[in-house]
Amino acid sequence: MSEAKTKPTQVSVEQYIAAIVDSERRAEVESLLKLMCQATNQAPVMWGPSIVGFGKYSYSNASGRTGESCAAGFAARKGDISIYLVAEGPSQQVLLSRLGKHKMGKACLSIRRLAEVDLKVLEQLVSESYAEVLRRHPCSDA
């Protein structure tokens, strides 16, 4: 069975953010970092070269594959910011309807600019998703 490619690294979150060339995107990522630290009550850790993760949990899927992942996280992409909401919280659909301009995949919320979303709603989305990960995986290190 193959090993997961995305793992915690020793890379500095500050260096990752400082390397973002677009000053507006860098400022948004700094704001998002503060929001996610507050929502999860966790210190950020780089997962692979581009994901800032908060907490971690162990998983196993139907095929028997096991691994670890961050319980919440984000990545600054060129066109948008990807926010990883691993577990659907109890009021996720209602919160998404109030969030503002976004796209939601299975576990990835994409936004172009933080100014286009309600930050209080975003913080609640992250907080509820994080709490749901802890509920589903009580032995996690989140």
Results as ranks from 00 to 15, higher is better:
residue 60 S to M: 13
residue 93 Q to V: 06
residue 1 M to L: 12
residue 102 H to S: 11
residue 100 G to K: 07
residue 48 G to M: 02
residue 130 Y to P: 06
residue 120 K to D: 09
residue 138 P to V: 10
residue 4 A to S: 12
residue 92 Q to S: 03
residue 127 S to P: 10
residue 53 G to R: 00
residue 116 E to T: 11
residue 55 G to R: 02
residue 94 V to Q: 14
residue 102 H to D: 13
residue 105 G to E: 08
residue 6 T to E: 13
residue 117 V to G: 07
residue 59 Y to K: 01
residue 106 K to L: 12
residue 32 L to S: 09
residue 46 M to N: 13
residue 62 A to H: 08
residue 83 I to H: 08
residue 46 M to Y: 03
residue 128 E to K: 13
residue 21 V to Q: 14
residue 8 P to H: 12
residue 10 Q to L: 14
residue 134 L to W: 04
residue 75 A to M: 10
residue 75 A to K: 04
residue 9 T to C: 10
residue 140 S to D: 04
residue 96 L to R: 10
residue 139 C to Y: 14
residue 21 V to M: 12
residue 58 S to T: 13
residue 123 E to S: 14
residue 142 A to P: 03
residue 31 S to D: 10
residue 109 L to S: 05
residue 29 V to T: 05
residue 118 D to K: 05
residue 101 K to D: 13
residue 55 G to W: 02
residue 125 L to V: 00
residue 134 L to V: 14
residue 132 E to I: 11
residue 75 A to C: 09
residue 117 V to Q: 01
residue 83 I to P: 10
residue 50 S to F: 00
residue 132 E to M: 15
residue 47 W to H: 00
residue 128 E to T: 14
residue 104 M to H: 11
residue 74 F to D: 08
residue 95 L to E: 03
residue 135 R to T: 15
residue 86 V to F: 00
residue 45 V to N: 03
residue 87 A to N: 00
residue 7 K to H: 11
residue 12 S to G: 01
residue 110 S to E: 12
residue 142 A to V: 13
residue 65 R to Y: 06
residue 33 L to C: 02
residue 95 L to A: 00
residue 120 K to E: 07
residue 71 A to K: 01
residue 40 T to S: 14
residue 79 G to C: 04
residue 123 E to I: 02
residue 24 E to Y: 12
residue 12 S to V: 13
residue 55 G to V: 00
residue 29 V to D: 00
residue 95 L to F: 02
residue 18 A to F: 10
residue 23 S to K: 14
residue 22 D to L: 12
residue 117 V to T: 03
residue 40 T to K: 07
residue 131 A to D: 04
residue 59 Y to T: 01
residue 98 R to I: 06
residue 136 R to L: 15
residue 4 A to M: 08
residue 85 L to V: 11
residue 114 L to K: 07
residue 39 A to Y: 04
residue 141 D to E: 15
residue 12 S to Y: 12
residue 79 G to E: 06
residue 83 I to M: 11
residue 117 V to W: 08
residue 55 G to C: 03
residue 4 A to D: 13
residue 72 A to K: 07
residue 13 V to I: 07
residue 45 V to G: 01
residue 18 A to S: 15
residue 71 A to R: 04
residue 6 T to L: 10
residue 54 F to G: 04
residue 90 P to S: 14
residue 54 F to S: 03
residue 60 S to D: 07
residue 57 Y to K: 08
residue 124 Q to E: 15
residue 49 P to Y: 09
residue 67 G to N: 01
residue 103 K to H: 02
residue 117 V to E: 01
residue 69 S to Y: 03
residue 109 L to P: 05
residue 115 A to Y: 06
residue 47 W to K: 01
residue 103 K to A: 10
residue 24 E to I: 05
residue 9 T to L: 09
residue 79 G to L: 13
residue 112 R to F: 11
residue 113 R to K: 15
residue 1 M to H: 12
residue 132 E to D: 06
residue 62 A to L: 09
residue 97 S to F: 04
residue 92 Q to I: 03
residue 102 H to E: 08
residue 14 E to H: 01
residue 37 C to P: 05
residue 122 L to I: 13
residue 37 C to H: 07
residue 82 S to D: 02
residue 58 S to W: 07
residue 111 I to D: 09
residue 115 A to T: 15
residue 70 C to H: 09
residue 131 A to Q: 01
residue 2 S to C: 03
residue 92 Q to R: 02
residue 111 I to A: 04
residue 26 R to Y: 11
residue 61 N to K: 07
residue 90 P to D: 11
residue 107 A to G: 07
residue 111 I to S: 05
residue 36 M to W: 08
residue 2 S to N: 08
residue 65 R to C: 00
residue 1 M to I: 09
residue 137 H to M: 08
residue 21 V to K: 15
